[in-house]
């Protein structure tokens, strides 16, 4: 009985945090997106951890280089499916607006099948999944 209550509380807490985190995200789980950086540098880093991704954004040049083994470079135009989103997770001292951290699964190109985290600003061409109304 005690065990089942603990599990239930944990599930509720996780669900609550995910719901809270997703509250302000501009993408939803299941959305199909296209990865594209800036027009000057369209490649996108796919990170194995959103925390590393955040450190990369905030760190010095040496710190950035040290983190590179944890990222793969996705070509611009790579398609992916959103599997998770944490709103305003990446706060950079160089930008006033924090960015979302978006968990994706690559569905095209050489990295197909690989999962990872990308910045919200690297997400383009969002195709929202059609949800059925009950």
């Amino acid at each position: 009985m005690r065990r089942s209550s603990f599990v239930l509380a944990l599930v509720l807490a996780l669900a609550g945090s995910v719901a809270l985190a997703r509250a302000d995200c501009r993408v939803r789980t299941g959305d199909v997106v296209v990865l594209y950086g800036t027009s000057d540098d369209p490649d996108v880093f796919l990170w194995d951890s959103r925390f590393r991704m955040r450190r990369y954004q905030e760190g010095t040049f040496d710190e950035m280089n040290a983190l590179l083994p944890h990222a793969v470079l996705a070509r611009p135009g790579t398609r992916a499916v959103v599997v998770s989103c944490v709103a305003r997770f990446v706060r950079s001292k160089f930008s006033d607006v924090p960015e979302d951290a978006i968990g994706v699964k690559i569905v095209s190109g050489p990295l197909r099948g690989q999962e990872g985290w990308v910045l919200g600003s690297s997400i383009r061409g969002i195709y929202h999944r059609i949800r059925r109304r009950r």
Binding site: D41, D43, M64, L73, F94
Partner: peptide
């Protein structure tokens, strides 16, 4: 080229921050 591209992107990202400043 893949490894160089990653390093290149790191340079580019940092330079972008500096120029933004």
């Amino acid at each position: 080229i893949a490894q160089i591209d990653k390093e290149n992107k790191a340079f580019t990202d940092y330079e972008a921050r500096t120029t933004d400043e």
